[in-house]
Design a protein around this nucleic acid. Structure first.
Lengths: 342, 342
DNA sequence: TCCAGGAGCTAGAACGTTCTAGATTCATCC
DNA sequence: GGATGAATCTAGAACGTTCTAGCTCCTGGA
C-alpha cells in the first residue's frame, strides 16, 4: 500500500510542494533536481528525501517551456517497417549519451507524414529525424527552413538547404549483391525493385551498372516490387511461372525478400538450390535463424548514430560537414545464396 | 523560397508576435487559435492572416502547462511486436475522435518498461495505456495509484485498484483453436506456449481444458516457446525430431507460428498436409497472402477502441464498469490447417 | 432618458519550471 | 580588523500559453 502523498488530492506535486516540505526555496529544489551545483550535500539529501516522500516528479513540459532548449529530437517513423523500428532502437541509444530525448511520431494508416511532422513541431522539437520520408521535396524544404532536419535513407537531389542526409550507399550495396551472385556463377539475376520507395532508384541503378560491368547486359531484368512482403510475394509468383527460372533474385529489401522466399518454398522451388535470394537492410527479419537471409547489411546502429550526431552538431553550432553521410554497406552472406545448379 | 518571417531570427513566433502584427491582445489571438467564441469574424480573419504571415504555430507545451488538462494519452508499446504496432495504429484512430492525443514511448533493447513509463509521466499524460506490460504487479499498482492505467492483453489477478484491463478471452481463443483442430480430425495436438508472456497462462489453460473435454487428456503436450519467431523455430526443431510427429500445432502467437512454419517447410514437413499450424493474434503477419495463417483473431481495432474509451471515461468522470473488458476472439481459418493425413 | 444585456475585446494572473541577480554566511588573507 | 571570495541560498522575473474578470461599446425596451 503506497503511502498517501501529502499534497492536495488530484494534483500532482510541484517544486513548491517539495520546497515547503523541505523548508527551502523552490529555486533550491530546482537546483537539486537538475543535479546542478549550488547546494550542500546535507540540504541536497533533505530535498531529495522530501521529494521522494510526496512522490514528486519534474514536469517535463514546464521545464521545457522555461529553458530555452528543449533537447528534444523528433523522430518520424513507419510503424510497420522493421527497418525503421530497428533504427528507432538505435536512435534511442544514440540520443541518450548526447543528452537528448527522443519524441516519436508514427506514420500509419490514416496518419500521414504531414500529420506526424506537425505534431513534432508543436512539441517544440529542436530538430527532426525523418526515417525514409516520402513527402515531396518541396514540403521537406519548407520544414527544413524552420529547423534542422535529417533525412535517413532518403537521398535528396538537388540538396535542400537545412536538410542533411544520412544514408547507405544503395548503389554500392546493389553492386555487392550482384558481385556476390556473379562470383557464385550466376548470370541470370533478376531485380525486384522498390518502385518509388526511398533508395529504390539507386539500388536499381547499382544493379544495372554492375550487370553491365560483368557483361550481363542482356540478362538485366527488373520487375516491379515494393517494400512489403506482399509486394515480394506478388513478384515471386510472377517469376515462378517463368520457365526456365532465373537462377538468382535480388529483392528491394528484407521484407520483400521474405515474401519471395515463402512463395518459392510453397511452389517447390528450393532456395538456394534452385534459386538464390538476396535481401537488403539486414533488419531483424533477416537475422532470424529460420530465415537466415543473405542480405546487404545497412549498418543500422551507425546510421542512427550519425543521424543523431548530425542533428546535435547543427544544434550546438558545431561546424557541420556539408553534404551527406554515405555509409558503405556490407554484404552479409547467410544461407539463401549458393552456386546455381547446373 | 519561403518568405522571411517578421520575427527575430532563431526564435519561433509566439502569440505576442501575432498579436502585435494584428494589432490586438494576446488573449484575443488565443481565442482565435482555439477557435473559441468571443471574436468577430472580421478580426478572426485578420488574426489568422497575421499568424499565417509570420508562420506562427501554437506551442503545445506552453498550452498544456497552462490548461489543467493535457488531453494526452501515454502509450507504452514494444517496438518489435507487430501485434503492438497494429494496436498503436488502432489507438491513434480511436483517440483522435475522442479529442485526445497519443504520446508514444517504446520499449526496446536498452530501454525498459520502467523507463518508458517514466517518460510518459514526465510528459504529463493524463492516463496510460500499456500494451502487454510485463512489469511486476506491484510496480503497476504503484503507477495506477497516480493516474488511470489501462493494461491491454495482460490480465491482472487480483485486480489492482485504478488499473483496468482490456483483453481477449485467451482461454476461449485456445479452446476455439483446439475445437477447430479436433473437428478436422486431429487428436495429437501440441501447444507451443508463451512462457511468462501476457496471456500465455490463459492460453495454456484453455488448451488443457479443451483437450480434456474432448477426452484427449493423454495427448496433452505443452512445449516451451515464447513470443518471437526464434522461439517458435526452436520449438519446431525440437518437434520435427519426433517420430511420429504430432498432427497439429497450436502456437502461442503469430510470430511464434511463423517460426514454426518456416522450420517445417525447410525440414520437408508439409503444412497443412503433414501437420496443421494455428497462430494467435491475427496480426499483420498472419494476413500476408504468402503466410496465410489460420489463427485466433484478436479484434485489434476493438481492443484499441475499448482501451481508449476506458481511459477517457475514467478521465471524464463517467461511470466506469468495474472489472475487465474481455473480448471474444474469433478463429480465422486460412490455409495452414486441414484434416490429418491418414 | 436610462439602463439591461450582449458582443467584442483586454489586463493581468495563473501554470511549474529555470535563470539572473543578489543576499547571507563564514573562513581566509593581508 | 576589514576586505576578499567562495559556498550556499533566495526573491522574483521570465517562458508561451489559457483563464478570469472586467471594460467598452452598441442596441433596444421601458
Amino acid at each position: 500500500m503506497p503511502e498517501t502523498p501529502a499534497v492536495p488530492a488530484g494534483k500532482r506535486p510541484t517544486l513548491a510542494d517539495v520546497a515547503a516540505r523541505a523548508g527551502v526555496s523552490t529555486a533550491l529544489v530546482s537546483i537539486v533536481m537538475r543535479d546542478a551545483k549550488g547546494a550542500s550535500a546535507a540540504t541536497r539529501e533533505r530535498v531529495l528525501q522530501a521529494a521522494r516522500e510526496i512522490g514528486y516528479r519534474p514536469d517535463a513540459r514546464a521545464r521545457l517551456l522555461r529553458s530555452q532548449r528543449s533537447r528534444l529530437l523528433g523522430v518520424q517513423f513507419g510503424l510497420q517497417h522493421p527497418f525503421h523500428t530497428d533504427l528507432v532502437e538505435g536512435l534511442y541509444a544514440a540520443a541518450e549519451p548526447a543528452g537528448y530525448q527522443i519524441a516519436l511520431s508514427a506514420v500509419a494508416a490514416g496518419r500521414g507524414e504531414q500529420r506526424a511532422v506537425e505534431t513534432l513541431l508543436a512539441d517544440r522539437c529542436e530538430a527532426l529525424i525523418l526515417l525514409g520520408p516520402q513527402a515531396p521535396a518541396a514540403r521537406l524544404a519548407e520544414v527544413a527552413g524552420q529547423l534542422p532536419v535529417v533525412s535517413v535513407a532518403r537521398r535528396l537531389r538537388p540538396a535542400i538547404p537545412g536538410l542533411e542526409v544520412v544514408r547507405t550507399a544503395d548503389d554500392e550495396g546493389a553492386r555487392q549483391a550482384v558481385d556476390h551472385l556473379v562470383a557464385l556463377g550466376h548470370r541470370d539475376i533478376v531485380h525486384i525493385d522498390g518502385g518509388r520507395a526511398p533508395g529504390a532508384a539507386d539500388r536499381r541503378r547499382g544493379y544495372r551498372t554492375a550487370m553491365n560491368r560483368h557483361g550481363l547486359a542482356e540478362h538485366i531484368r527488373i520487375i516491379p516490387g515494393g517494400l512489403t512482403e506482399e509486394d515480394g510475394a506478388d513478384a515471386a509468383r510472377a517469376l515462378s511461372a517463368d520457365r526456365p527460372h532465373p537462377t538468382a533474385v535480388m529483392a528491394f529489401n528484407d521484407r520483400c525478400a521474405t515474401g519471395v522466399l515463402d512463395v518459392f518454398l510453397r511452389a517447390g522451388i528450393a532456395v538456394p538450390d534452385d534459386i538464390s535470394v538476396v535481401g537488403f537492410d539486414d533488419s531483424h527479419l533477416a537475422r532470424l535463424a529460420h530465415i537466415d537471409l543473405t542480405t546487404v547489411g545497412q549498418d543500422i546502429p551507425r546510421l542512427a548514430h550519425l543521424a543523431v550526431s548530425r542533428a546535435v552538431a547543427r544544434l550546438e553550432g558545431d561546424q557541420v560537414l556539408a553534404g551527406e553521410d554515405v555509409i558503405t554497406p556490407r554484404l552479409v552472406v547467410r544461407s539463401t545464396t549458393a552456386p546455381p545448379s547446373l
